[in-house]
């Protein structure tokens, strides 16, 4: 069975990672649903439980949430990428994310029941699922490590604001030790701040 045109991008993406045979591919194609979003439409909003993973054929979607009462853009996702709220999807809990179409968007939707039936029946799809979530993990882990690096800057900022006379009078290596960073790192922070 030849691939319908709207599945060619997702098939190319998948075949870089796993190699399903004809039967396995057909089982996958059978669970795919097609969806269109108009500009400004929401794919997902706060309070819903995310029960799908989507693949963008064309268009751009903005991920945002409210943190400390402020609207914060988390990411932009476009052609040839998967998009979902993995936490809500895995844990079956309500999402805090909004997924908003910034343009008209052509999407493929994989619903949770369909995905689970592929996981149950086919080793190749279980493997694909594993490799995808491993990538997602690595992405978040890198961001988390970066935040830890940034926290020290904030600590220095707070300290310098509260004790400006100490910052001027006390040798750097004492301040570094107090903040729990190396003197070299403190120099870098001071240059940035």
């Amino acid at each position: 069975m030849s691939t319908p045109q709207n599945l060619t991008k997702i098939e190319a993406f998948i075949r870089q990672i796993v190699q399903p045979n004809a039967e396995e591919w057909e089982a996958f194609a059978n669970i795919v649903q097609v969806k269109q979003l108009r500009k400004k439409q929401l794919l997902l909003e706060k309070g819903q439980t995310c029960n799908f993973i989507a693949f963008i054929n064309t268009g751009v979607i903005r991920e945002y949430s409210f943190q400390n009462g402020k609207e914060t853009t988390v990411d932009f996702v476009s052609d040839n990428q998967f998009i979902t709220d993995y936490q809500s999807f895995i844990m079956k809990t309500p999402t805090i994310q909004y997924l908003e179409a910034l343009t008209d968007v052509d999407l493929l939707i994989l619903r949770k029941e369909g995905i689970n039936s592929l996981f149950d029946k086919y080793k190749v799809w279980e493997r694909f699922g594993r490799l995808i979530i491993e990538r997602v993990f690595c992405g978040v882990e890198a961001k988390r490590k970066k935040i830890i690096a940034t926290t020290h800057e904030e600590q220095y900022r707070d300290f310098a604001a509260a004790y400006p006379q100490i910052v001027q009078q006390v040798p750097q290596y004492y301040i570094a030790s107090y903040l729990g960073v190396t003197p070299e790192h403190l120099s870098r922070i001071r240059k940035k701040v």
């Binding site: 844990m91 594993r130 979530i133 988390r144």
Partner: peptide, 18 residues
């Protein structure tokens, strides 16, 4: 494979929460 996927999901949730 399922074990690997579930471990990665667990670690993902932990790091996202952290």
């Amino acid at each position: 494979e399922r074990f690997g996927r579930l471990m990665a999901e667990k670690l993902f949730l932990a790091t996202a929460r952290s």
